[in-house]
Design a protein around this nucleic acid. Structure first.
Lengths: 249, 249
DNA sequence: CGTAACCTTGACGTATATCAAGGCCAGTGG
DNA sequence: CCACTGGCCTTGATATACGTCAAGGTTACG
């Protein structure tokens, strides 16, 4: 699946978001990264733990989840290759949620210590990491808006829009098609709706010729239509630096 | 309303959350703070702006809000005295949401430049600020769980629990009573429910003798009962350092 | 070829939205 | 001091998006 230098995916992503000084690129590529293959539905970090490393996602998808005491699960965000979903563990000891793989994934583990040192030695890297953490929290805010104000159809559409744009940054959604090993039940938990309703909503998206969704492959058939249904505005992703935008179909 | 050194409120709060080195306390108390009174419903920072200062809330409440294109408003979080809701503006230029006062408030403006310098000169302050930003994003994640998985009654109860705990950190909720200038319509927009339903839910909380809510004053009558209804677990607030916990009634 | 995970469908129930009206209170102007 | 006003809360009637239950169908995989 993923070949070559493990941090190259992260660098690709960063170059789309920030002006990556070659010095910072140096520092990043010298980080020790232990690559590991994860099976599907594997918990990389669990709520209540105190991690000692960060996870750089190299291939596949991860998601954050959190459960209330009644057992209902909420998915809090998805991650695409190039993301480091648990940067916050550098500063907040206890994990307040669980990080899980959606489908099988390839993850690079970077020890906190090494990352801390790299950050201390490179103000540019420090700024980059801050931006990454803050963008993550901006995405969480949009997720609140999504669940709090939009109907189920728009919620599902919105998540699809977000994923496509984020995948395009790392060039994983050519022709608006992408691998998506996330079940309808997972989508339901991400949107705060029931599995049955998620299914009906997805069928509606298909019926409107907005998306094709077969097995684990999703294709956006009508980007503008989907954006309209989703009420999607990509500003919250803070990609302004790159100017990379999804291509219309 | 608020008297004395403007940053003393922040220091009070920080002492409840981190082990505040006296050096950091020094740095903080030397920050230039321009104090300003805000009327109710005043937008301190608006979506799309590029702020040049941060807002230290000294008295009253602020909240973040964001609107979809259909005009439906979502409140993303509330802030209590001692909070700095827009620390992220130090690193993300464009505001992706609006910051508004709930009731009249007293705010101290700190120029980005001064704050950046202080952070650069004090690694302790740097860690503190990071913790503050990351706690904010942990709160956002719990907000997602709240809206995504819980029924309206629990949603409202949960927000009340969170506010009480956060107020107690700065000693503003003695005897489980606090000033709460947030209308039922605002609560509705915070919970992702309609105003009418918010009203009915609040009446239900009253009927169960969990809270008293008259005008702009809220009193928790049965903390344990409210926590149960809300499915509230304060870990996500990351107050572990203080050991400050709400007193039961 | 069997089994389990996942998707799909229908019938029915309910939490919550919407609409519309009325009530209460605080502040304002005469 | 009283009528007036606007904001907020309250209430009832009705509508609907979505949940739940239960069963059957499909697909992937060993």
């Amino acid at each position: 699946m993923h070949t070559g230098h493990p941090q190259s995916r992260w660098i690709t992503r960063l170059e789309a978001v920030v002006d990556l000084a070659s010095a910072a690129r140096e520092v990043i590529s010298r980080l020790p990264v232990a690559v590991k293959n994860c099976p599907a539905d594997f918990d990389l970090v669990t709520q209540g733990e105190t991690p000692t490393h960060c996870c750089l996602l190299l291939d596949g998808y991860l998601y954050r989840q959190k459960q209330g005491s009644d057992g209902r699960r909420q998915i809090l965000s998805f991650y695409v290759p190039g993301d480091i979903p648990d940067l916050h563990s550098l500063h907040l000891g206890l994990m307040d949620h669980t990080l899980t793989s959606a489908g099988s994934a390839v993850v690079g583990f970077i020890p906190h210590e090494a990352l801390q040192q790299a950050i201390a030695s490179s103000p540019a890297l420090n700024r980059i990491i801050l931006r990454e953490m803050l963008t993550d929290s901006s995405i969480a805010r949009e997720w609140i808006l999504n669940i709090g104000t939009r109907q189920a159809l728009a919620r599902v559409a919105h998540i699809l829009c977000e994923i496509v744009v984020r995948l395009q940054v790392v060039d994983l959604a050519r022709d608006m098609a992408f691998h998506w090993p996330v079940s309808q039940a997972d989508m339901a938990d991400a949107c705060g709706i029931s599995t049955v309703h998620a299914n009906r909503v997805i069928q509606e998206l298909r019926a409107r010729n907005l998306v094709e969704w077969q097995g684990r492959k999703v294709t956006i058939l009508d980007w503008n239509g989907l954006v309209t249904v989703a009420d999607f505005a990509p500003g919250y992703l803070h990609l302004e630096h790159a100017g990379k935008r999804p291509r219309s179909v």
